[in-house]
Design a protein around this nucleic acid. Structure first.
Lengths: 214, 214
DNA sequence: ACTGTTGGATAGTTTCACTCTCCTGATGAG
DNA sequence: CTCATCAGGAGAGTGAAACTATCCAACAGT
């Protein structure tokens, strides 16, 4: 198919597709002549994934390019590709600072990982953006005057641990290959709003149950 | 305290504070003379909350203004204020369309709410932005070729239900009043990245556990 | 009186994600 | 063969969002 059809089938404007091609979010089509190229179903799938990452997942274009680079890196195993993609995903940009709040947050997180036996994560330490993002989040809550104790944090972590296990269960039902990696990215990016939405909904329901609708 | 001190204590530049004042994210100080005003601790707290919402929670300025308006609306009860704030919070903006994917997503969500007995949420139906956000997320996954069955969705919802219950337990430990409402906003906005970070971390750990580090 | 700040208003600046305009080179109907 | 049409590519332009910088008159501390 050509650019026009790709645009029509995906609902993305031609100008935007050209932009994504320029930004290398979408691999170039197979060149037919000097001024024409042919696209296939994989381009359509990739385009939809890009759109989902950017629009639903709020992932910046530059970051999306990086993540997709890891998705396409066939020299890595599943775990590493998943990890690489996760690694590149957007974190609540630092601005941590080394104040007391940050130090306390680091301590809390360390204790949490020890408590749960998540030693893999502890070894990686604060090199991981995920780890740093968590420190930032806890530190911010400290600064705001809503400190999180270990006891309050552990139940959250346990639930998210089970969610993660369920994530991987679902991933295993996919045929291995790039579809599995794409599913991993979709899971990382698109399940976020899903889970948060479910939490909000549950909060409303629970609040109504406890206090009535006043 | 005056602008300069507010800036120093919060770490936010004077120019930015002026911007927030202009945008009514921060109530004006108590006027001392025609060209000078006095700020207090509540301004500092509010400023930190605003920063957290915008920087960590990625909440747009206009939305933050709306949310804070509800926080300050003392004519409402706790549930309603929490609901109002939640209601105003940013959703993965629609662009739903009425295609088959959206219809199927609506059906799945309805079934889920019935299954869990979350009838309060079902009555509100698709008026709620949270509800619509969920439909968008599920529909997007459908379109990408990663359909979510009810069976796969239910465990997620149960876990988030427990998380929400824990959220409200924590909320009850706060002294009633505006601090409680602020805690509710902080919970809604700032726990998001915290939970997502925990999920990512748990995914890495679980993946390493299952498949090794390859 | 002098120096430096403060609050307020207005006008930049930066970043990001597109979107528009041009241009060259096919391509297909008549 | 011709001529309007469309494809692809490159560069400049646009609009929104969140700041940031510049002015200015009115104070405040010394």
């Amino acid at each position: 198919m050509r650019l026009g059809e790709l645009s029509e089938r995906s609902g993305v404007s031609i100008a935007t597709i050209k932009y994504y091609l320029r930004e290398r979010l979408l691999p170039p089509g197979r060149r037919v002549t000097a001024t024409q190229a042919e696209y296939d179903e994989s381009h359509l799938r990739r385009l939809r994934l890009v759109r989902a990452m950017i629009q639903v997942g709020r992932v910046p274009v530059a970051t999306a390019r990086e993540v997709l680079g890891h998705v396409d890196d066939e020299s890595l195993g599943l775990t590493m590709r998943l990890g690489a993609a996760t690694w590149a995903l957007p974190q609540p940009e630092d601005e941590v600072g080394d104040d007391a709040a940050a130090a306390s947050a680091r301590g809390t997180l360390d204790a949490l990982l020890a408590e749960l036996g998540w030693d893999t994560a502890r070894e990686i330490g604060d090199l991981s953006p995920v780890h740093r993002g968590l420190v930032t989040a806890i530190a911010t809550l400290n600064r705001l005057g809503f400190p999180l104790s270990l006891d309050e944090l552990v139940p959250y972590a346990r639930h998210m641990g089970e969610v993660a296990a369920h994530d991987l269960d679902l991933l295993e039902t996919r045929p291995p290959g790039s579809e599995q990696v794409e599913a991993a990215v979709a899971s990382a990016v698109l399940y976020d709003p899903l889970l948060l939405g479910l939490r909000r909904l549950a909060q409303e329901v629970e609040s109504a149950r406890r206090y009535g609708i006043t």
